[in-house]
């Protein structure tokens, strides 16, 4: 446990010293801020007209705007945050030195993963400010917000774990980032692919499988709207465990690879 904590502390400190991490945070918050502002202005204008007819309030789409946008942006955020993690260690040869320390590969990988997930959690928590702003213009549904944030947090963890696989596969950070982005985008668009497959008479059977494999099917309609399903939580948690296990096996190959 202390080995995991040592790696975690070292990596987390590196994130707060790294210009890329700050650039990612800046770009993400700027993008979210602009979109949130536009969406809020629209929503307020709509609510004023509805209030004149006796309705009003903050809608679910306002509440899950920030988490939903973050999950969409994960195909960029994930690769940028993880591309350095293992690829740089391999390129600079420091991974061999780390492997001589009294810790196994799993502890090393888990420590690194917890560090990047913690950094992502900090980014996610910064967007809670949007929820606080919403409380000033209406009465937001705390259940929906909680579900959406929980979903975005787990979604981010799964994406970061998947991206770590590519960082372990290649020593080139750019290649790792591209492969990670492609993988996350494919998983993000699996739901769209499933819709196309449903229309095809020969591939209709695969539609359910493809949808279930994708990330959005476990977030967009359920967690983002305040519906907690055990299968969605299990999907993200098992995805993290599976991806970290594969990453560990890949790093382990260094011990016996010719």
């Amino acid at each position: 446990m202390s080995a995991i904590f040592a790696v975690f502390k070292r990596e987390l400190a590196l994130y707060f010293r790294s210009p890329i991490a700050y650039a990612v945070a800046f770009a993400m918050l700027l993008f979210l801020g602009i979109l949130f502002n536009g969406n809020l202005a629209q929503s307020v204008a709509f609510n004023v007209s509805v209030a004149q007819q006796g309705g009003g309030g903050v809608t679910a789409s306002d509440l899950n705007l920030a988490p939903a946008l973050i999950t969409f942006l994960m195909f960029l955020i994930g690769p940028l945050l993880t591309m350095r993690l293992l690829a740089e260690e391999a390129r600079e040869g420091t991974i061999e030195v780390l492997m001589t320390l009294p810790m196994n590969e799993a502890q090393f990988i888990i420590g690194k993963f917890l560090a990047v997930w913690s950094y992502y959690t900090v980014l996610l928590l910064l967007t809670v400010i949007y929820h606080l702003i919403l409380t000033l213009v209406g009465v937001p549904d705390a259940g929906v917000a909680f579900g959406a944030y929980l979903g975005a947090w787990l979604y981010g963890g799964a994406v970061l774990a998947i991206c770590m696989i590519w960082s372990a596969v290649t020593e080139d950070q750019i290649v790792a980032a591209f492969l990670s982005a492609a993988t996350v985008l494919v998983l993000y668009l699996a739901e769209v692919a499933a819709v196309s497959l449903t229309g095809s008479p020969t591939l209709a059977n695969a539609a359910g499988f493809v949808r279930e494999l994708g990330l959005q099917a476990h977030f967009g309609a359920t967690l983002a709207n305040g519906i907690i399903r055990a299968e969605d939580i299990a999907y993200f948690v098992l995805m993290m465990i599976g991806a970290l296990f594969i990453t560990t096996r890949i790093v382990e190959t260094r011990r016996w690879r010719a």
Binding site: D141, A142, G143, V144, F146, G147, N225, G226, I227, I228, R229, A230, E231, A234, Y235, L238
Partner: peptide
């Protein structure tokens, strides 16, 4: 494990309304 959990059908509606 995923298939087993999916079969249990555990769900909760967190919405206040």
């Amino acid at each position: 494990i995923y298939v087993f959990i999916r079969g249990q059908n555990w769900r909760a509606d967190l919405t206040e309304r």
